[in-house]
């Protein structure tokens, strides 16, 4: 038996790690991965609440989050490739001009 709050704490820690990574990392790919980490943290709390309230719709939400994450990864990585092609860098600090 594990209290629901343990799952919520774990989910919160993952989300916090994601936020921290988003703020401190300089590599654009790692920043994207931090976003995925945040989404994963949220998913865990969805599933934990679904188990707590005995409502399957919490698990359905996870699927929608996954679809959004997949779409985001596809578009985001395409943007990264396009940026790399013109700037030849992955450092977000050096991508600071609106035009070439």
């Amino acid at each position: 038996m594990v209290p629901l709050s343990y799952y919520l704490v774990l989910s919160g820690v993952l989300f916090a790690c994601g936020v921290t990574g988003f703020l401190i990392k300089r590599n654009i790919i790692t920043i994207f991965m931090s976003i995925e980490l945040m989404l994963n943290g949220v998913n865990l709390s969805f599933v934990a609440f679904a188990a707590h309230w005995h409502a399957l719709s919490g698990q359905i939400f996870v699927f929608f989050v996954m679809v959004v994450a997949a779409a985001e990864a596809a578009v985001g990585l395409a943007i990264i490739i396009a940026v790399y092609r013109t700037r030849e860098t992955l450092n977000v600090d050096q991508v600071n001009l609106l035009k070439l």
């Binding site: 038996m1 209290p3 629901l4 709050s5 704490v9 919160g12 188990a51 707590h52 005995h54």
Partner: peptide
């Protein structure tokens, strides 16, 4: 901040326990 949130969640949320394979 995270310790505070964790403490509040663990002690004051009043949630029941979730058994393995609950749902």
């Amino acid at each position: 901040g995270s310790l505070l949130v964790a403490w509040v969640l663990i002690t004051h949320s009043g949630t029941q326990e979730v058994s393995a394979g609950a749902l």
